[in-house]
Write a protein that binds this DNA or RNA. Structure first.
Length: 596
RNA sequence: CGGGGUGUAGCUUAGCCUGGUAGAGCGCCUGGUUUGGGACCAGGAGGUCGUAGGUUCGAAUCCUAUCGCCCCGACCA
């Protein structure tokens, strides 16, 4: 039991001016965190308690054995936060990952040896765990294994945002599974997905698993855990049939599987379009070519070589989907890079065979499936101020490969059910990847099987943003008065508001109640401050403790105390004689409702 | 990194346009009256006006630079 007067809960009446969203304001007003600098936060005693509870639940769920998948539980370890830059240089994503890493020097750098070793602050730990496992595990008998840690991660976020939501330094659970083969890796993946789901369920936050893009991490498939919230950074595309995917990854059944190729509608014909540089201009008078009858040709640079992406005029490129093409780094090409290859400036570009000035320079022409819906359409002539009409997809376009590159729009048919797709914002609180052998190959993490054959280990990696989850819970569970903590992670589960701390019998009863609640399994905060009742009630709502008990002189005269769950309006009056017993009962009921 | 905004007491802020005494509320300290939803009265402490230059007799205010922070975009747990 903690006494408020002796503890430290610095609440604020007003929101700091730099907090924008509800959860960020409440984090600070309720005294959970304080800002050191952009994206850097001190966890105050109350905030730390929540973090510790989240971590404890996370450990429990990860370490639980998973007989359904034949998996043992994950094993905790602790890796350095400071990594030799060498590890990253040897890994598969140095070029892409260095952008977000902090480089660390020691304060005396330059005064000692001519060449100082370089260090980075770890943004994640594949580059550390994989060499470790290579060194320690060489036999199939030691597989599968799944290691995890809960610790600080450092990412030089280009733009920290919304308090803990996107911070430069944050707390993450990261786990890494190592399996002998792909089937095993899938089992590990599913076991971790189940563990994460169990974790979020026990925390008391609604987080849904959605299909996700693998991004810089690489790998073959991936899910994100999303907490639905307007302030989230991601769009989740979903249907009532249970399909859910990050917009970056989402597809639709817009193009029927049995769509026949359109027959040519006539000879390709060049026509002058002076000054026309956009889809909209071509759609307007006097040309009047609807956007969805135009081919849009985009030029990107993939690992130094240009490639084309062809979309319907009204469709937008979903840039993340270009990741499937296998380039390490890609970016839009500049006009100066485009002209020598295609022969025209943006606005008159096309992918029609024979019009591309230097087709050999291209790393490929990739067309979205949806262009097949156009059949015959209009596109740039690769000659400034000219377009081509009657361009037939199969006859005329120099397509290397079709793929899914367009951004899905709400209302399109769900790929599973055909129901209209919907969209909502979400906060990404977890992300799991089946990595395959990408890292194992690079670091030589291999094992010997029972036929003396060597194979690369098949990996998976799994992250949960612990500090971000803390804020996501607040975002999802608050009202105008403050936070409404779920029981399992509340900094305290019972708050005893002692309205008359100077009244000896009131203090004695409050302490007795505190002891009873504690014995029943709750963490108890006793508000023994010499404050007016209004202040105590406001603070109680603000800090969001799930069960509030009021002990006051007036109640005692009437022979009652009050108990009120944070989430409801009406308080329960309980006779003093039954108080300890009933409170203990309420605590036990609340606790058992959330464990398991 | 591009675009927008903003720095005044522990917090929220007024003053800046149109240069001359830096003001309020909350919080804090002392005393008193209060005490079931952020009390009241009296008194008090606390500010190099982000920083550095410049203009001026005189700069929180005008100019320049710089730093921090916030928001929008790309990135991510």
């Amino acid at each position: 039991m903690k006494r408020w007067s002796q503890f430290f809960v610095p609440t604020l009446k007003e929101s700091p001016s730099d907090a924008e969203i509800a959860s960020h304001k409440l984090l600070i007003r309720a005294g959970l965190v304080r800002k050191l600098g952009g994206g850097l936060y001190t966890f105050m005693p109350m905030g730390l308690r929540v973090m510790q509870k989240l971590s404890a639940l996370c450990r429990e769920e990860l370490e639980r054995e998973n007989p359904e998948h034949g998996r043992a539980g994950a094993i905790e370890l602790w890796m350095p936060h400071l990594h030799p830059a060498d590890n990253w240089e040897q890994g598969p994503r140095w070029a892409a990952a260095r952008e977000i890493m902090f480089r660390a020097d020691h304060a005396g750098a330059g005064k000692g040896r001519a060449r100082e070793p370089e260090f980075v602050l770890g943004p994640t730990h594949e580059e550390v765990i994989t060499p470790l496992v290579k060194q320690e595990i060489t036999s199939y008998r030691d597989l599968p294994k799944n290691f995890y840690q809960i610790g600080t991660k450092f990412r030089n976020e280009i733009r920290p945002r919304y308090g803990l939501m996107r911070a430069k330094e944050f707390v993450m659970m990261d786990a890494y599974s190592f399996d002998a083969d792909d089937d095993g890796a899938i089992k590990s993946y599913l076991a971790m997905k189940a563990a994460d789901e169990a974790f979020f369920r026990r925390v008391g936050v609604k987080a849904i698993a959605v299909e996700a893009d693998t991004g810089v991490m690489g790998g073959s498939f991936s899910h994100e855990f999303m907490v639905p919230a307007e302030v989230g950074d991601d769009d989740v595309i979903y249907s009532d049939a249970g399909y859910a995917a990050n917009r970056e990854k989402a597809t639709s059944a817009l193009v029927p599987a049995d769509l026949a190729d359109a027959a040519p509608a006539g000879e390709v014909e060049k026509f002058a379009t002076p000054g026309v540089a956009t889809i909209a201009q071509l759609a307007a008078e006097p040309y009047s070519v609807p956007g969805d009858a135009q081919f849009k040709t985009l030029v990107y640079m993939g690992d130094g070589k240009p490639f084309l992406v062809v979309l319907r005029g009204n469709d937008e490129l979903e840039e993340a989907k270009l990741g499937a093409l296998g380039f390490t780094l890609f970016r839009p090409a500049t006009a100066d890079e485009i002209a020598p290859v295609l022969g025209a400036r943006p606005g008159s570009l096309g992918a029609v065979r024979g019009t591309i000035k230097d087709p050999a320079a291209l790393a490929g022409v990739f067309a979205d499936h949806a262009v097949r819906l156009i059949g015959n359409g209009v596109t740039g002539a690769n000659e400034d101020g000219f377009h081509l009409r009657h361009v037939n997809v199969t006859r005329d376009l120099a397509i290397t490969k079709f793929g899914d590159f367009r951004r899905v729009r709400p209302g399109e048919p769900c790929p599973r059910s055909g129901q209209p797709l919907q969209s909502r914002r979400g906060i990404e609180v977890g992300h799991i990847f089946k990595l395959g052998t990408k890292y194992a190959d690079k670091f030589g993490a291999a094992y010997t099987d029972d036929h003396k054959q060597s194979h690369p280990m098949v990996m998976g990696c799994y992250g949960i943003g612990i500090s971000r989850t803390l804020q996501a819970v607040i975002e999802q569970s608050h009202d105008a008065d403050g936070i409404i903590w779920p029981w399992a992670i509340a900094p305290f589960q019972v708050l005893i508001c002692l309205l008359d701390p100077k009244l000896p019998e009131a203090l004695a009863l409050a302490e007795q109640l505190a002891a009873a609640a504690e014995a029943a399994g709750a963490d108890v905060l006793l508000d023994d401050r010499e404050e007016r009742p209004g202040v105590k009630f406001k603070d109680a709502d603000l800090i969001g403790v799930p069960l509030r008990v009021v002990v006051g002189g007036k109640g005692l005269q009437a022979g009652v105390i009050e108990v009120k769950p944070r989430a409801v309006k009406e308080a329960l009056k309980i006779p003093v004689a039954d108080a300890t017993e009933q409170l203990a009962g309420l605590v036990r009921a609340a606790a058992s409702a959330v464990t398991v």
